[in-house]
C-alpha cells in the first residue's frame, strides 16, 4: 500500500475544511458538503478496499462494521476503531476512534462549535457501505475537538439488501 506523510494529509484536509467555511459561510452547509465529499470518496474507495484487503464477504451488519473499523480504518487512516454500544436489535453501534490523524494540530475557533470537522469520515462510511448494499446513517456523535473525551461515530443500519442482479432475464 502506498503511503503519504500524515502531516501533509492532515494539513491538506485542514485547508479544505477552512476553504469550505470561507466559501459556504454556514456551518451546517459545511457539514453537509463534507458529508457529500466523503460519500463521493466512499463509493470509489470501496472498490480499492475490496481489491486490496482480501477479506471474505461479510455475513451480517456486525461483521461489516468490524471490517470497517479494523481493516478499513487501518488501511486508509492508519488507525483503528472499536465497535461498541450496540443496541439490542443489533442495528445501531458506535465506532470509537482511538486516534484521529485528521485532527492533529486542530483547534476549533470560536463560532465553529457546530462544525463536524471530520464529517468526511461519515460520508466515506456511508458511501462505501451503500455500494455493498448496506444502507446506513452515519453521524459524528462525539468529537474531541468539541470537548468530548473521545471520537465517536454513530452508525445506524437502515436496510441491508441481499445481492441481486440488476437486470432480468427477459430484458
Amino acid at each position: 500500500m502506498e503511503t503519504i506523510n500524515s502531516e501533509i494529509f492532515t494539513l491538506m484536509y485542514g485547508s479544505i475544511v477552512r476553504q469550505l467555511i470561507t466559501d459556504l459561510e454556514d456551518i451546517t452547509e459545511v457539514n453537509k458538503q463534507l458529508d457529500t465529499m466523503g460519500y463521493n470518496i466512499g463509493v470509489r474507495l470501496i472498490d480499492e478496499f475490496l481489491a486490496k484487503s482480501r477479506t471474505a464477504a461479510c455475513t451480517d451488519f456486525r461483521d461489516s462494521t468490524e471490517k470497517v473499523a479494523k481493516v478499513g480504518f487501518r488501511m486508509f487512516l492508519n488507525t483503528t476503531a472499536n465497535v461498541t454500544n450496540w443496541n439490542p436489535e443489533g442495528t445501531e453501534c458506535s465506532l470509537v476512534l482511538e486516534d484521529n490523524p485528521l485532527t492533529d494540530f486542530v483547534e476549533l475557533p470560536e463560532g465553529c462549535s457546530k462544525l463536524k470537522y471530520c464529517n468526511v469520515l461519515c460520508g466515506v462510511i456511508r458511501g462505501a457501505l451503500e455500494m455493498v448494499n448496506v444502507q446506513v446513517e452515519c453521524d459524528f456523535a462525539k468529537d474531541t475537538l468539541r470537548g468530548d473525551e473521545l471520537n465517536e461515530i454513530r452508525l445506524k443500519l437502515i436496510s441491508e439488501g441481499t445481492e441481486a442482479y440488476p437486470f432480468k432475464d427477459d430484458d
Binding site: E7, L11, Y13, G14, D104, F105, V106, L108
Partner: peptide, 19 residues
C-alpha cells in the same frame, strides 16, 4: 509551531487561543 499548524490560524494575526 502547533499554533501555526492549526488550519484555522491565519499567519501574522493575533493568537487568541486560551490554551
Amino acid at each position: 509551531l502547533k499554533v501555526m499548524m492549526n488550519p484555522f490560524f491565519t499567519p501574522n494575526t493575533q493568537i487568541t487561543s486560551p490554551s
